[in-house]
Computed example of a mutant assay.
Amino acid sequence: MSDSPRPKGEPRFPDGPQPDPAGSHFDRKIRSFQPRRSRVTQGQADALQRLWPKWGLDIDGQRTLDLPELFAADIPVVLEIGFGMGEATARMAAEDPGTGILAVDVHTPGQGNLLNLADRAGLSNIRVGNGDAIILLREMLTPGSLAGLRVYFPDPWPKQRHHKRRLIQPEFLTLAASRLRPGALLHCATDWEPYAEVMLDVLTGHPDFENTQPESGYAPRPDFRPRTRFEGQGLDKGHVVNDLLFRRVPLDTDTSPH
């Protein structure tokens, strides 16, 4: 089984994702994610071993990605930060085969599950990134290279002392804007209402983004975002899910530094 003992120092998946691939190369005083350790099933482990060399990417910050080369096609690429077990990602990839999805997470079972789903469905437009999305954006992607950014149900870090760990903050938005092409869509969704309110305020106040909603509020869930199992569980508990759809403003009105 995938969780059987192994000699000390031997990688868990020799040909798969590596633990903390950026290592000590970069100073990361604040992490917006919490690594989660949970059991990897045999099917997920098999997918990681078979498919990681083909569709996987360790985010080490040591090279600049050529997205057409990565996807073996010159197609628009959307970055998804945090995909859970990957069911929604796989569905979006299947329904829009002309768009590449670079899906990033640190959850090893989810990485294996998404690779397995992509393989079983014959999807060639998914690549799975392992590591810190901030390092990916800052060190490995070129300006204007992304056609969209999706952040679905990020950790809300509900305690006041942890709010600095929240992903959607002005500094992150400035970095993201520099990698998004004009007109690209930034799509966030959360079932934590206080975080949704902060997201709306921060996005509304950022000069590089404009709300797609005429009333400058939340958006209806678009058809292209499937309802996930996690979302359904939240709705069953009475949670309110809010979608935010903001567009990267044209460069001629851009005031952010690059």
Rank of each mutant, 00 (worst) to 15 (best):
A103W: 01
T255C: 11
N211D: 05
D236Q: 15
T41H: 08
A133G: 08
T212L: 00
K237Y: 07
K159C: 15
G56Y: 02
D74G: 15
H162Y: 11
P158T: 09
D155P: 04
S24H: 05
Y218V: 05
L185V: 08
W157Q: 14
A121S: 13
E171Y: 06
L115K: 09
T255H: 13
H107M: 09
Q169W: 14
H107D: 01
R229L: 00
P194N: 05
D3G: 00
W192H: 06
P226D: 04
H107C: 04
D27Q: 15
G100H: 02
F26T: 09
S38I: 07
M140V: 03
G183K: 12
N130W: 01
Q62T: 13
H187N: 05
G238I: 01
Q111I: 00
H239F: 13
N242R: 15
L65Y: 10
I168M: 13
A45W: 06
D15Q: 14
P182Q: 10
L114P: 00
G144H: 02
R181K: 15
F209G: 03
R36G: 11
D3Q: 07
P53F: 09
D252R: 08
T41Q: 04
P257S: 15
G234V: 04
A196F: 01
F246L: 07
Q44S: 14
A118P: 08
T190E: 01
L203C: 13
R120L: 13
D132P: 13
K29F: 13
H206N: 12
D20F: 12
G217P: 06
P76K: 10
F83N: 00
I135E: 01
G56I: 06
A103F: 06
D105R: 05
M140S: 08
Q34R: 14
T174M: 04
A176L: 11
E87Y: 05
G100L: 02
T64F: 05
R150T: 12
L180P: 06
Q111Y: 05
L167W: 09
T253P: 13
T253G: 07
D132C: 08
T212Q: 14
H163D: 03
E80D: 04
R6S: 03
E210S: 14
A196D: 05
P250D: 00
